[in-house]
Nucleic acid binder design. Structure first.
Lengths: 208, 208
DNA sequence: CGCCTGGATGGCACGTTGTGCCATATCCGC
DNA sequence: GCGGATATGGCACAACGTGCCATCCAGGCG
């Protein structure tokens, strides 16, 4: 499935998506610059040109405003992994999907990526941002679990499957954090993820 | 060092510790019973017999009130690991310290353990509790990192050290979650942790 | 063209969260 | 016992997040 369904979005729906992106980028910019604590929801609303009430219609909390940006990578990762053809060895599938998910997005603005990296750099010193990051990480684990258990042929309820999911997700998290902390170009994130998977996967998965 | 410093606590200090424990247990009971969202900070304050203002002197947020209970295990784990004699193989040190940390606490009330398990059972369906749990997990990782890097003789800044810390901490988290979700007695948590460590440690650590 | 139905938005009031400030009560050292 | 330090409570306040209602606008129908 190279292209998922693209039902022609109505004018209203496209404007809603644009507004959501607008709010997310404004929040990312303000959070990275002044910290999440020091930024009020009204700051974000005013900067993105909506009322406070409308802001809370798009996001449940002010921290949620940056969640889509932080979750974008793992969303693509899980989608690619789920689309892997059945026979693929799990480690190969992990490496390939991670590499593709971390590659610069074809149709997506580099602006998002820059602000996302800014968020990740501010994250270690910002408790509120840490919480969002770990919530995104947890959601990724939840989405990853059934996909990975099926690919590896493990019982989803067993300890091995839980460990495999948690370890793979943790490897991805550490790779992204390590990439964000350094000055390396975006492409290096994929290499870090590959190294992390190879290092951790040994006892959990057969060699590819 | 079998017994860390025990400077004779003054009356005031003992009362403060008792108050803190009182608040934490009240919060755990209310959170497990009604959910964290439905419990107000004033509920916790009233139940534990302090004013709302005093509650916020003990804990920064209402969710923080249960953090000490959830963090107790990893706090002991890291302390035991840090006290390991230098020559011990890392995997042995991990297995032994985890076993000791998860053993029923000698001087601690079983009441805490019961409510902690109640919290962990309510956690998967309670976003606020999930956030606290992951924050505790993150703090544990921060505390664990230098200790484990030193024990394994790895550069604390390198990818290998980061992965080892994250993987060990994740193994512990999965083991505790798996234990809490089942009906097994407390002692089984140690067995689960041992199995998780052995499964993950292969490529990261030499055999014990 | 006017109407009108549904959805997006804004304004307002409200309960809750978390903090600064000051007054009071209580404990510890002299 | 007495004076200083400290824990506690009460109050006011900014910010968070939600329910409710009014308004505006796009698109279908007579």
């Amino acid at each position: 499935m190279p292209a998922p369904d693209r039902p022609p979005l109505s004018l209203t729906e496209r404007r809603k998506a644009a507004t959501q992106q607008e709010i997310a980028l404004a929040a990312a910019r303000l959070f990275a610059e002044h910290g999440a604590e020091a930024t009020t929801a009204e700051d974000i609303a005013r900067t993105s040109g909506v009322s406070l009430r409308t802001f809370y219609r798009y996001f449940r909390t002010k921290e949620d405003a940056v969640a889509p940006l932080l979750a974008e990578g793992s969303r693509r990762w899980v989608a690619l992994l789920a689309a892997t053809s059945p026979g693929t060895p799990p480690l190969t599938a992990l490496l390939d999907s991670a590499r593709a998910a971390l590659a610069p997005a074809p149709g997506h603005p580099a602006e998002s990526l820059a602000w996302t990296r800014g968020l990740l750099r501010a994250m270690p010193d910002d408790p509120a941002l840490r919480d969002v990051w770990h919530r995104v990480h947890h959601d990724a684990e939840t989405a990853l679990h059934p996909v990975l258990a099926r690919l590896a042929g493990l019982d989803a309820e067993g300890l091995d499957a839980r460990l495999l999911t948690a370890a793979a997700n943790t490897a991805m998290r550490v790779a992204v954090e390590t990439w964000a902390a350094g000055d390396a170009p975006p492409a290096d994130a994929a290499d870090l993820a590959g190294a992390a998977f190879r290092r951790l996967a040994g006892p959990l998965l057969p060699p590819a």
